[in-house]
């Protein structure tokens, strides 16, 4: 079964989603990620979804849940690179992903995390 790779950069985990997200893959990612946060003692997670053209309500909810789980494990989650069409769809669906931090791209997301870690 295909897997989404999780890269570690210092105390930050970087997840770049480059395949079409289907429901099982999303759930597997959520599980992998929570395990890795504990194992690597990470305190930041960046999920890059710039290659995703479609995000449905389920994937949106999984992202939200993942962020909530990470927060309990003391890691800040930032979703980066959301496409305009995806943002509009999520808002129309009523999913505002409250509680999930966002940034325009990975670089800005990293800067945001390092600011947070320093303070």
């Amino acid at each position: 079964m295909e897997k989404i790779p999780i890269l570690r950069i210092g105390k930050v985990l970087l997840v770049t989603i480059q395949v079409d997200m289907h429901d099982r893959l999303a759930l597997a990612l959520q599980e992998d990620l929570s395990e890795r946060i504990v194992r690597d003692e990470a305190n930041g997670v960046i999920i890059d979804i710039s290659a995703l053209d479609i995000v449905d309500s389920f994937i949106g909810r999984v992202l939200s849940n993942t962020a909530a789980v990470a927060r309990i494990l003391d890691a800040e989650t930032i979703v980066v690179g959301m496409q305009p069409a995806v943002a509009i769809t999520l808002v129309e669906l009523g999913l505002n992903l409250t509680g999930v931090k966002t940034a325009l791209n990975v670089e800005l997301g990293m800067a945001m995390l390092s600011r947070r870690l320093r303070s």
């Binding site: 980066v80 943002a87 509009i88 808002v91 325009l104």
Partner: peptide, 12 residues
């Protein structure tokens, strides 16, 4: 509000 929410989702 929708516009604001969508912009926020993109990180602005």
């Amino acid at each position: 509000l929708k516009t604001v929410a969508a912009a926020r989702l993109m990180g602005a």
